[in-house]
Amino acid sequence: MTLIMVVDDDQDLAEMLGIVLTGAGYEVDLVSRGDEVMPLFTAQNPDLILLDVMLPGLNGVEVCKLIREKSMVPIVMLSAKGDKQDVVAGLEAGADDYMVKPFDPSELVARMKVRLRRSTAEVSTDLQIGNIKIDQIEHSIIRDGQIIALTRLEFDLLVALAKEPGRVFTREALLSEVWGYRPATDTRLVNVHIQRLRSKIEIDPENPKIILTVRGVGYKAGVPGSPQ
Protein backbone atom coordinates (compact mmCIF):
# COMPACT_ATOMS: atom_id res chain seq x y z
CA MET A 1 0.00 0.00 0.00
CA THR A 2 1.13 3.55 -0.69
CA LEU A 3 2.23 5.40 2.42
CA ILE A 4 1.71 9.15 2.65
CA MET A 5 3.36 11.17 5.40
CA VAL A 6 1.27 14.20 6.38
CA VAL A 7 3.24 16.87 8.28
CA ASP A 8 0.99 19.59 9.72
CA ASP A 9 0.77 21.15 13.17
CA ASP A 10 -2.97 21.78 12.90
CA GLN A 11 -4.43 18.63 14.46
CA ASP A 12 -7.89 19.05 12.91
CA LEU A 13 -6.57 19.64 9.42
CA ALA A 14 -4.18 16.70 9.75
CA GLU A 15 -6.99 14.46 10.89
CA MET A 16 -9.23 15.66 8.04
CA LEU A 17 -6.42 15.02 5.54
CA GLY A 18 -6.10 11.56 7.07
CA ILE A 19 -9.82 10.89 6.49
CA VAL A 20 -9.72 12.13 2.88
CA LEU A 21 -6.53 10.29 1.95
CA THR A 22 -7.60 7.05 3.63
CA GLY A 23 -10.83 7.39 1.68
CA ALA A 24 -8.77 7.67 -1.51
CA GLY A 25 -7.03 4.43 -0.67
CA TYR A 26 -3.75 5.58 0.87
CA GLU A 27 -2.12 4.67 4.11
CA VAL A 28 -1.47 7.82 6.16
CA ASP A 29 1.14 8.71 8.75
CA LEU A 30 0.54 11.94 10.69
CA VAL A 31 3.40 14.07 12.04
CA SER A 32 2.83 17.37 13.87
CA ARG A 33 6.34 18.73 14.48
CA GLY A 34 9.06 19.62 11.99
CA ASP A 35 11.85 18.13 14.06
CA GLU A 36 10.06 14.79 14.28
CA VAL A 37 10.04 14.25 10.53
CA MET A 38 13.55 12.90 9.91
CA PRO A 39 13.56 9.98 12.40
CA LEU A 40 10.11 8.86 11.22
CA PHE A 41 11.06 9.33 7.59
CA THR A 42 14.04 6.97 7.85
CA ALA A 43 11.95 4.44 9.76
CA GLN A 44 8.83 4.44 7.58
CA ASN A 45 10.22 5.39 4.15
CA PRO A 46 6.96 6.97 2.83
CA ASP A 47 6.11 7.23 -0.88
CA LEU A 48 5.06 10.88 -0.73
CA ILE A 49 5.20 13.70 1.81
CA LEU A 50 2.61 16.43 2.34
CA LEU A 51 4.53 19.17 4.14
CA ASP A 52 3.13 22.30 5.76
CA VAL A 53 5.38 25.38 5.62
CA MET A 54 4.78 26.71 9.14
CA LEU A 55 5.76 24.05 11.62
CA PRO A 56 6.91 24.04 15.24
CA GLY A 57 10.41 22.78 15.86
CA LEU A 58 11.72 23.09 12.32
CA ASN A 59 9.95 24.88 9.46
CA GLY A 60 8.83 23.14 6.28
CA VAL A 61 11.48 24.63 4.05
CA GLU A 62 14.27 23.34 6.34
CA VAL A 63 12.62 19.92 6.59
CA CYS A 64 12.39 19.81 2.81
CA LYS A 65 16.13 20.49 2.49
CA LEU A 66 16.93 17.71 5.01
CA ILE A 67 14.81 15.18 3.14
CA ARG A 68 16.33 16.12 -0.21
CA GLU A 69 19.80 15.39 1.17
CA LYS A 70 18.72 11.78 1.62
CA SER A 71 15.96 11.04 -0.80
CA MET A 72 14.23 11.96 -4.06
CA VAL A 73 10.79 11.19 -2.66
CA PRO A 74 8.02 13.44 -4.04
CA ILE A 75 7.26 16.36 -1.73
CA VAL A 76 4.13 18.52 -1.97
CA MET A 77 4.22 21.65 0.17
CA LEU A 78 1.04 22.93 1.79
CA SER A 79 1.28 26.71 1.95
CA ALA A 80 -1.11 28.99 3.73
CA LYS A 81 0.39 32.18 2.42
CA GLY A 82 0.68 31.77 -1.28
CA ASP A 83 3.09 34.66 -1.35
CA LYS A 84 5.88 34.44 -3.84
CA GLN A 85 8.73 34.23 -1.35
CA ASP A 86 7.26 31.27 0.54
CA VAL A 87 6.38 29.35 -2.59
CA VAL A 88 9.73 29.95 -4.23
CA ALA A 89 11.62 29.12 -1.01
CA GLY A 90 9.77 25.81 -0.80
CA LEU A 91 10.36 24.96 -4.44
CA GLU A 92 14.02 25.91 -4.25
CA ALA A 93 14.42 23.71 -1.19
CA GLY A 94 13.37 20.83 -3.42
CA ALA A 95 9.59 20.54 -3.19
CA ASP A 96 8.00 19.18 -6.37
CA ASP A 97 4.68 20.91 -6.08
CA TYR A 98 2.72 23.09 -3.72
CA MET A 99 -0.91 23.59 -2.78
CA VAL A 100 -2.20 26.86 -1.41
CA LYS A 101 -4.69 26.53 1.43
CA PRO A 102 -7.64 26.33 1.22
CA PHE A 103 -7.27 23.70 -1.47
CA ASP A 104 -9.83 21.43 -3.05
CA PRO A 105 -9.26 17.91 -1.65
CA SER A 106 -10.06 16.28 -4.99
CA GLU A 107 -7.43 18.45 -6.67
CA LEU A 108 -4.94 17.51 -3.98
CA VAL A 109 -5.56 13.82 -4.59
CA ALA A 110 -5.33 14.30 -8.35
CA ARG A 111 -1.96 15.99 -8.08
CA MET A 112 -0.66 13.42 -5.63
CA LYS A 113 -1.57 10.75 -8.14
CA VAL A 114 0.49 12.48 -10.84
CA ARG A 115 3.46 12.63 -8.47
CA LEU A 116 3.07 8.99 -7.51
CA ARG A 117 2.61 7.54 -10.98
CA ARG A 118 5.39 5.25 -12.10
CA SER A 119 6.63 5.73 -15.62
CA THR A 120 4.85 3.19 -17.72
CA ALA A 121 6.73 0.74 -19.82
CA GLU A 122 5.11 1.91 -23.07
CA VAL A 123 8.19 3.92 -24.09
CA SER A 124 11.21 1.70 -23.90
CA THR A 125 13.64 3.52 -26.16
CA ASP A 126 16.41 5.52 -24.63
CA LEU A 127 15.97 9.25 -25.13
CA GLN A 128 18.74 11.66 -25.88
CA ILE A 129 18.69 15.38 -25.13
CA GLY A 130 21.85 17.37 -25.76
CA ASN A 131 24.64 15.03 -24.70
CA ILE A 132 22.49 13.49 -21.99
CA LYS A 133 21.15 9.93 -22.18
CA ILE A 134 17.86 9.18 -20.45
CA ASP A 135 17.23 5.58 -19.47
CA GLN A 136 13.51 5.39 -18.84
CA ILE A 137 13.56 1.81 -17.57
CA GLU A 138 16.39 2.36 -15.10
CA HIS A 139 15.00 5.83 -14.36
CA SER A 140 18.42 7.38 -14.59
CA ILE A 141 20.20 9.98 -16.66
CA ILE A 142 23.81 9.83 -17.76
CA ARG A 143 26.07 12.68 -18.86
CA ASP A 144 29.56 11.79 -20.08
CA GLY A 145 29.36 8.39 -18.38
CA GLN A 146 28.28 9.86 -15.05
CA ILE A 147 24.91 9.26 -13.46
CA ILE A 148 23.12 12.44 -12.31
CA ALA A 149 20.57 12.12 -9.51
CA LEU A 150 17.21 13.78 -10.23
CA THR A 151 13.95 13.88 -8.35
CA ARG A 152 11.10 12.06 -10.02
CA LEU A 153 9.53 15.37 -11.02
CA GLU A 154 12.74 16.64 -12.57
CA PHE A 155 13.04 13.36 -14.43
CA ASP A 156 9.46 13.67 -15.72
CA LEU A 157 10.10 17.26 -16.80
CA LEU A 158 13.19 16.26 -18.74
CA VAL A 159 11.43 13.30 -20.36
CA ALA A 160 8.48 15.47 -21.40
CA LEU A 161 10.85 17.86 -23.20
CA ALA A 162 13.01 15.10 -24.70
CA LYS A 163 10.08 13.07 -26.08
CA GLU A 164 9.21 15.80 -28.58
CA PRO A 165 12.51 17.50 -29.40
CA GLY A 166 11.14 19.98 -31.95
CA ARG A 167 8.16 21.16 -29.93
CA VAL A 168 8.14 24.40 -27.98
CA PHE A 169 6.34 23.81 -24.70
CA THR A 170 4.49 26.71 -23.12
CA ARG A 171 4.65 26.84 -19.35
CA GLU A 172 0.96 25.96 -19.25
CA ALA A 173 1.55 22.89 -21.43
CA LEU A 174 4.34 21.71 -19.12
CA LEU A 175 2.13 22.33 -16.10
CA SER A 176 -0.64 20.08 -17.38
CA GLU A 177 1.79 17.48 -18.74
CA VAL A 178 4.13 17.17 -15.76
CA TRP A 179 2.14 18.46 -12.80
CA GLY A 180 -1.32 17.47 -14.04
CA TYR A 181 -2.73 20.97 -13.63
CA ARG A 182 -5.64 22.61 -15.34
CA PRO A 183 -4.48 25.58 -17.35
CA ALA A 184 -4.42 29.15 -15.97
CA THR A 185 -2.53 28.32 -12.81
CA ASP A 186 0.72 29.52 -11.45
CA THR A 187 3.60 29.19 -13.91
CA ARG A 188 6.30 30.09 -11.39
CA LEU A 189 6.36 26.41 -10.54
CA VAL A 190 7.74 25.68 -14.01
CA ASN A 191 10.33 28.47 -13.90
CA VAL A 192 11.77 27.34 -10.57
CA HIS A 193 11.99 23.68 -11.53
CA ILE A 194 13.53 24.39 -14.91
CA GLN A 195 16.19 26.38 -13.07
CA ARG A 196 16.80 23.57 -10.58
CA LEU A 197 17.00 21.05 -13.38
CA ARG A 198 19.41 23.22 -15.33
CA SER A 199 21.68 23.60 -12.31
CA LYS A 200 21.95 19.81 -12.18
CA ILE A 201 22.33 18.87 -15.84
CA GLU A 202 23.71 21.89 -17.64
CA ILE A 203 27.46 22.43 -17.67
CA ASP A 204 26.89 26.19 -17.63
CA PRO A 205 23.41 26.88 -16.21
CA GLU A 206 23.70 30.56 -17.21
CA ASN A 207 24.08 29.53 -20.82
CA PRO A 208 21.84 26.47 -21.18
CA LYS A 209 22.28 24.03 -24.06
CA ILE A 210 19.95 21.18 -23.07
CA ILE A 211 16.83 23.07 -22.04
CA LEU A 212 16.48 26.17 -24.18
CA THR A 213 14.27 29.16 -23.39
CA VAL A 214 12.05 30.36 -26.23
CA ARG A 215 11.48 33.98 -25.40
CA GLY A 216 7.87 34.91 -24.73
CA VAL A 217 6.67 31.35 -25.27
CA GLY A 218 8.32 28.70 -23.09
CA TYR A 219 10.96 25.99 -23.35
CA LYS A 220 12.22 23.36 -25.74
CA ALA A 221 14.80 20.57 -25.80
CA GLY A 222 18.28 21.18 -27.19
CA VAL A 223 19.37 19.26 -30.31
CA PRO A 224 20.29 15.64 -29.36
CA GLY A 225 24.01 14.99 -29.47
CA SER A 226 24.94 18.62 -29.93
CA PRO A 227 28.22 19.46 -28.22
CA GLN A 228 27.96 21.58 -25.09
Binding site: D10, D12, L13, M16, L17, I19, V20, G23, M54, A80, K81, G82, D83, V100, K101, P102, F103, D104, P105, S106
Partner: peptide, 21 residues
Protein backbone atom coordinates in the same frame (compact mmCIF):
# COMPACT_ATOMS: atom_id res chain seq x y z
CA UNK B 1 -2.25 40.34 6.29
CA UNK B 2 0.06 37.39 6.17
CA UNK B 3 -0.91 36.27 9.69
CA UNK B 4 -4.64 36.65 9.09
CA UNK B 5 -4.17 34.75 5.88
CA UNK B 6 -2.53 31.84 7.63
CA UNK B 7 -4.94 31.78 10.56
CA UNK B 8 -8.03 31.88 8.34
CA UNK B 9 -6.87 29.55 5.63
CA UNK B 10 -6.03 26.54 7.74
CA UNK B 11 -9.48 26.16 9.31
CA UNK B 12 -11.08 26.96 5.96
CA UNK B 13 -9.16 24.06 4.43
CA UNK B 14 -10.46 21.72 7.10
CA UNK B 15 -14.04 22.97 6.66
CA UNK B 16 -13.76 22.54 2.95
CA UNK B 17 -12.50 18.99 3.15
CA UNK B 18 -15.14 18.11 5.72
CA UNK B 19 -17.90 19.55 3.53
CA UNK B 20 -16.63 17.56 0.53
CA UNK B 21 -16.62 14.37 2.54
Amino acid sequence: VSDVSHELRTPLTTIRMASQV
